[in-house]
Design a protein around this nucleic acid. Structure first.
Length: 861
RNA sequence: GGGCGAGUGGUGAAAUGGCAGACACGCUGGUCUUAGGAGCCAGUGCCGCAAGGCGUAGGGGUUCAACUCCCCUCUCGCCCACCA
């Protein structure tokens, strides 16, 4: 496919030369550097910073960066002081795994990869202020990661915990809850099991309510907000204590959202990891219980949560007393009760909860209805949990005041909870699904955690003036399988003196998850060279919050929750005025490309391996573009064949920002043709001398189209509807070309149109626009420094309009009328149309609707 | 099972209650050409010779008027999923 490329002779539209020339001029003039003394209103636009991988950039990355750059350029022309920065999220598992796969040391390749990413982005003609480039793997950056860690520690928001954690078997590291996807590791798809290890956590749960409340103050997609609310998972309910009967005195506390069903609790279930299991289990049951716990700890999270998995569990031999009726009920353990949620123990009400029902049936346990539809309904008659309907039974010992209430969680539950809370059987309690954020990693490639373990003083933070704790240079950075970081085997790193007592001590050898680095980078961009703090307060308060943040939907509950948490912590610590990182957020759609896939196993096949396959083994599929799938197209190839501007236009034109698009080089030839034609026609106009005395019948309508297009494009760019921006420009270009063909090239309207068109094109195709702008006589300047054209409503106004005439809502004829005709004359003109007269013959007119300048609808019958 | 989003020509899509299919790809024809896989011009939702009729996943509703708002059903995509 090479239809549009003009290789041999000088191309009609010399895009390669244009792009080379202007990229050099931009760099030489340093035009994207932010003016820190500006008095203009600020606009901070940010795209999620990438980790530079060995695969390099492909055009799919442009799905986000290009529209972001178009908006940044537009806002600058609109008179805003724009911050549009870029940097590298180069610490963490993705970068490290990539280095391992390629057999290289991340320390040596990351700078090279970052340079290559930057070169490729520059090829696209982006307007980043590279003087603000940040790289999270440099001490100047990660020093402040360590500072942030200590700030959280000081504020009681960082702690060391010994609870069971997610452990990725393949990569030998722990994972945050948000990094376990489908029970598997987010990076390697390997199995994840629970393993008890001492780990550092950030207490994000302390911010659960603030994180929920903040969602009402930001303009983020509803889907992302909903996901965050559900991930935080606030639920109101009660805690109830059950006293264990028998020899071992103990209390089992359960959390429930249905305290009204307490009379139907016929057994308790503890998570296998529950701390009381060992204490309460009777000798007779010990062996069975230990076997069960053993099996549960070995099973991966995926196996334990598999869909439709039959309920399993084992009896502890112990009983507990139901406080409301004094009944002794058996205590079981089962892995359908999760250790991390609530209290890790539940009261089971099989009559009204399907999971408990399934368990009761499997184990032959009692079922008792609390709500019944009638007095005849018997406990053993139900075949599934009775979740809705019925009224509270009189014969189960419940207080008079609640008997007969309907089975409704919104009305009855609070009433019953009040009653039993007064009686002392329950305490009101709010629970969250959100768990604390596990930030330590047993890996090399990350920020060292600035902690010292002293035999005398315990956990001692490294004093801030001793930061950064440098990540040592090592030969072997690969993780071991002993659950310890590679840093643990470097004595020079580990051995140190305690800052408090001066005695021999050891450094923490875990590093921080990469998600810590990305939780505040948007603040660093406001003052990337600040050495007195993580950011300069005045700069951060000037720029923050980010006005528009662009990135993928996959970050909805990971990064986008973490960075909101960090921002709120900084705000509460009095270090920042903003309390949300980004006022507006938009999620780009994916870019898919066609790949060949092995029919047998669904694996994508790279083009150079296709010859090994027989054609009927292969199937074409649209998959997310990536080098590993063999369907990647680089910006370099496209810039060489069609130019970066054509690529930018293609990405913008193919679909709205949020939509997924399917890569098509064939379609890109359309935007290439558009640019070639633009080059021709503007060049033609630029090559003539304006003759103010010329008169042309179409001049008025050309000017009208120009001003209409300005208005339309301005609105659409701000809303990221770049596809309609491009189409409006195509229509305008067509009008200009026809005017030139009709002899209008020297008319002032042609010049006005050419200049407006060039400026409107500038955010999308900056190289071509700058070259045309120069041809139009604007030497030594750049379109990005020009003012965005203003639409004059009087020029844009139509003087004639087409009015649609309907009878009973069906289109019957059209009228051309002067704009602004009054309703009476519009109606009269419609009624006089022969087709309408014929249509209305023999009918009675009941009603006539007139929408000025648009439509007449005659209701008749 | 739950949440969010989507369903419009051969294809990507446009239309924020008022002419459905703008713009573009593809295709067809014309033109210019030694040539065309370049350029330019025109046509292109479906049925029909036409007049005209039909048409935005399907069904119902609101409205003078529905791709658009409401209800039900189906299909697809993404996310979450034993959370007590």
């Amino acid at each position: 496919m090479n239809t549009s490329v003009q290789t041999d002779e000088t191309p009609r539209y010399p895009f390669r030369e244009i792009e080379r020339t202007w990229q050099k001029r931009w760099a030489d003039a340093d035009i994207y550097k932010v003016d820190t003394s500006s008095t203009k209103p600020k606009f901070y636009t940010l795209v999620m910073f990438p980790y530079p991988s060995g695969s390099g950039l492909h055009v799919g990355h442009g799905k986000n960066y290009i529209p972001g750059d178009v908006l940044a350029r537009h806002m600058r022309m609109k008179g805003y002081n724009v911050l549009n920065p870029m940097g590298w999220d180069a610490f963490g598992q993705p970068a490290e795994q990539d280095a391992i796969k390629r057999g290289v040391n991340p320390r040596t390749v990351v700078p090279q990869l970052a340079a290559e990413y930057r070169r490729q982005l520059e090829t696209l003609g982006v307007s980043y202020d590279w003087s603000r480039e940040i790289n999270s793997t440099e001490p100047a950056y990660y020093k402040w990661n360590q500072w942030a860690f200590l700030l959280l520690l000081e504020r009681g928001l960082a702690y060391r915990d010994n609870a069971p954690v997610n452990w990725c078997v393949n990569e030998s590291t722990v994972l945050a809850n948000e990094e376990v996807v489908d029970g598997k590791c987010w990076r390697c798809d390997g199995p994840v099991v629970q393993k008890p290890l001492p780990q550092w956590k950030f207490k994000i749960t302390a911010y659960a309510d603030k994180l929920i409340a903040g969602l009402d103050t930001i303009n983020w997609p509803e889907g992302v907000k909903t996901q965050q609310r559900e991930w935080i998972g606030r639920s109101e309910g009660a805690e109830v204590d059950f006293a264990v009967t028998g020899d071992t005195p103990a209390n089992i506390t359960v959390f429930t959202t249905r305290p009204d069903t307490l009379w139907g609790a016929t057994f308790l279930v503890l998570a296998p990891e529950h701390p009381l299991v060992a204490t309460i289990t009777t000798d007779a049951q010990k062996a069975a219980v230990n076997d069960y716990i053993d099996a549960a700890s070995r099973a991966s999270e995926q196996d334990r949560t598999a869909e439709n998995r039959p309920k399993t569990g084992v009896f502890t031999g112990a009983y507990a007393q139901n406080p409301v009726n004094g009944e002794d009920i058996p205590i079981w353990i089962a892995d359908y009760v999760l250790t991390g949620y609530g209290t890790g123990a539940i009261m089971a009400v099989p009559a009204h909860d399907q999971r408990d029902f399934d368990f009761a049936k499997a184990m032959g346990l009692a079922i008792r209805l609390v709500y019944r539809e009638s007095d005849d309904q018997t406990d053993d008659a139900i075949t599934a949990a009775f979740a809705e309907g019925g009224t509270l039974r009189a014969d189960i010992g419940a207080p008079e005041s609640i008997v007969g209430l309907p089975n409704d969680k919104y009305t009855t539950v609070p009433k019953v909870l009040d009653v039993i809370a007064n009686q002392g059987y329950a305490r009101k309690r709010v629970n969250y699904r959100l768990r604390d954020w596990l930030v330590s990693r047993q890996r090399y490639w990350g920020t060292p955690i600035p902690i010292i373990h002293c035999p005398a003083c315990g956990i001692v933070p490294v004093p801030v003036d001793q930061l950064p704790v440098l990540l040592p240079d090592v030969e072997n950075y690969k993780p071991g399988n002993d659950g310890r970081s590679p840093l643990a085997s470097i004595p020079e790193f580990v051995n140190c003196t305690c800052p408090t007592c001066g005695g021999a001590a050891e450094r923490e050898t875990d590093t921080m998850a990469g998600s810590v680095d990305s939780s505040w980078y948007f603040l660093r961009f406001t003052s990337p060279d600040c050495t007195t703090g993580a950011w300069d307060r005045a700069a951060a308060d000037y720029w923050m919050p980010v006005d528009l943040y662009l990135g993928g939907r996959e970050h909805a509950v990971g990064h986008l929750l973490y960075c909101r948490f960090f921002t709120k912590v900084f705000h509460d610590a009095g270090l920042l005025t903003a309390d949300e990182p980004a006022y507006a957020l938009r999620n780009q759609g994916m870019l898919l490309a066609e790949s060949f896939v092995d029919k047998e196993n669904g694996h994508p096949i790279k083009p150079d391996e296709l010859h090994k396959y027989n054609p009927d083994q292969l199937e074409k599929q649209w998959l997310k573009m990536s080098k590993s799938k063999g369907n990647a197209v680089t910006p370099d190839e496209m810039a060489d064949s069609y130019g970066a501007d054509a690529l930018r236009l293609y990405i913008c034109f193919e679909a709205p920002f949020e939509d997924t698009i399917q890569w098509s080089e064939e379609r890109m030839s359309g935007t290439f043709r558009f640019l070639s034609r633009s080059w021709d026609v503007i060049q033609t106009i630029a090559g003539t001398t304006v003759d103010a005395s010329t008169d042309h019948a179409d001049a008025r309508s050309v000017r009208r189209k120009v001003h209409q297009t300005i208005a339309k494009v301005s609105l659409a760019i701000a809303d990221l509807r770049m596809n309609t921006v491009v189409s409006s420009l195509m229509i305008l270009q067509d009008v200009i070309r026809k005017f030139v063909t009709a002899g209008g090239a020297t008319h002032p309207a042609a010049r006005e149109a050419a200049e407006a068109f060039t400026l409107l094109l500038a955010p999308l195709a900056p190289h071509t626009a700058d070259a045309l702008w120069e041809l139009l006589g604007h030497a030594n300047t750049f379109t990005i420094n020009e003012a965005w054209p203003e639409s004059d409503p009087e020029v844009a106004a139509e003087d004639e309009v087409t009015v649609v005439v309907q009878v009973n809502g069906k289109l019957r004829d059209k009228l051309t009328l002067p704009a602004g005709a009054d309703n009476a004359s519009t109606e009269a003109a419609a009624m006089a149309l022969p087709k309408i007269v014929a249509e209305l013959d023999g009918k009675t007119i009941r009603k006539v609707i007139v929408v000025p300048n648009k439509l007449v609808n005659i209701v008749a019958g």
